[in-house]
Simulated scan of single mutants.
Amino acid sequence: MEAATAAGLDDGALSAFVEMVLGEDLGAGDATSNATIPPDMRFSAVLAARQPIVVAGLELAAAFFRRLDPAVEIEFVAKDGEAVDAGTPILRLAGLARPMLAAERSALNTLQHLSGIATVTREYADAIAGTGCILLDTRKTIPGLRVIEKYAARMGGAQNHRMRLDDGILIKDNHIAARGGVAATVAAAKAANTGLEVQVEVDTVDQIEPALKAGADRLLCDNMDLATLREAVRVVAGRVPIEASGGVRLNTIRDIALTGVTYVSVGRITQSSPAADIGLDYSPTAA
């Protein structure tokens, strides 16, 4: 996935995303720049972090400038996944002033959003470093931005869980209620012979053995306290991977990881991360 053109997007998806975002921002064009900036004026520009961040989305940000000025000169000073301090340049530009100004907000919005996700994700990943537990993201993403948000989570140190509903079977409480119990629901999923891993959400330790006997490949322990998680790990005894989920915070994730679970999933890394503070400073150059 990282080999795709930009932030997980292939050529076609990248082009469509850039056109959509620029279309939303530009409308019929940048009226202010067109009225005040000579068409042949050139700028040099530097994008720099204004706080410590983990960078994500540089190539995607560059695509906006390239779209409006194919001849723009771009130097990547940092790379996605790199942690940089405040004041660190991450991208340099040289090109026509009008298209650079027109692309600025679209590029910055995207870069700040993805770098914000990567930065918060890295905090969570660092918090469980050394425990052997793996950080996962979730499907709690902004509609239409899932691919790039999950890319940013990877840059921060998380592994992606399901990208879409067809990526795996995850039986939750509503499925169990509709089917009439954990064992019956897992058995139905296994009998469907989809070839997909069957994961089941359990709320109590009592649900674990029925789920495993029915063939569950993985468990999701939902909103369990630490003592219950430790008991779940003891009962499972390594037979399948265990994921802990629900209400995980930065100040609680390490204790959760130390219970012995295989994974901890955190919805807030994509759902609630603030935008990173990244600035773009210009200086005129000779035409």
Rank of each mutant, 00 (worst) to 15 (best):
A7L: 08
A7D: 10
A7Q: 10
L14A: 02
F17M: 06
V18M: 04
L22N: 03
L26Q: 11
G29D: 11
S33G: 14
T36C: 05
T36E: 08
I37L: 08
P39K: 03
M41D: 13
S44E: 12
V46N: 03
L47R: 01
V55Y: 06
A56Q: 03
G57W: 15
L58H: 07
E59Q: 11
A61P: 12
F64K: 04
D69W: 05
A71C: 03
A71T: 12
E75Q: 10
F76R: 00
E82G: 09
A83E: 13
D85Q: 09
D85Y: 05
L91A: 11
A94M: 13
A94S: 10
R98E: 11
A102F: 10
E104Q: 12
E104R: 11
A107F: 11
L108K: 01
L108T: 14
N109V: 15
N109Y: 13
L111I: 14
S115K: 01
T119Q: 05
T119W: 00
R122W: 04
D126K: 02
A127M: 06
I128G: 03
A129V: 12
I134W: 06
L135E: 09
D137P: 09
R146N: 05
R146T: 09
R146L: 11
E149R: 00
R154P: 15
G156C: 11
G156P: 12
Q159G: 00
Q159F: 04
H161P: 13
D166P: 00
L170W: 04
N174W: 08
N174F: 07
I176V: 15
A177N: 15
R179T: 15
G180A: 07
G181R: 01
A183I: 02
T185N: 15
V186L: 03
A187Y: 06
E197K: 05
E197P: 13
Q199K: 01
V200Y: 04
E201K: 05
D203G: 13
T204C: 02
V205I: 15
Q207L: 02
A211S: 05
G215F: 09
C221V: 14
N223C: 06
M224W: 08
D225N: 10
E231V: 11
E231H: 14
A232V: 08
V233D: 13
A237N: 13
V240P: 07
I242M: 06
E243V: 14
G246A: 01
G246P: 09
G247I: 15
R254S: 09
D255I: 05
I256D: 05
L258P: 08
T262F: 04
Y263P: 01
V264Q: 09
R268Y: 10
Q271S: 08
Q271C: 04
Q271K: 12
S272K: 09
D277Y: 07
D277S: 12
P284R: 00
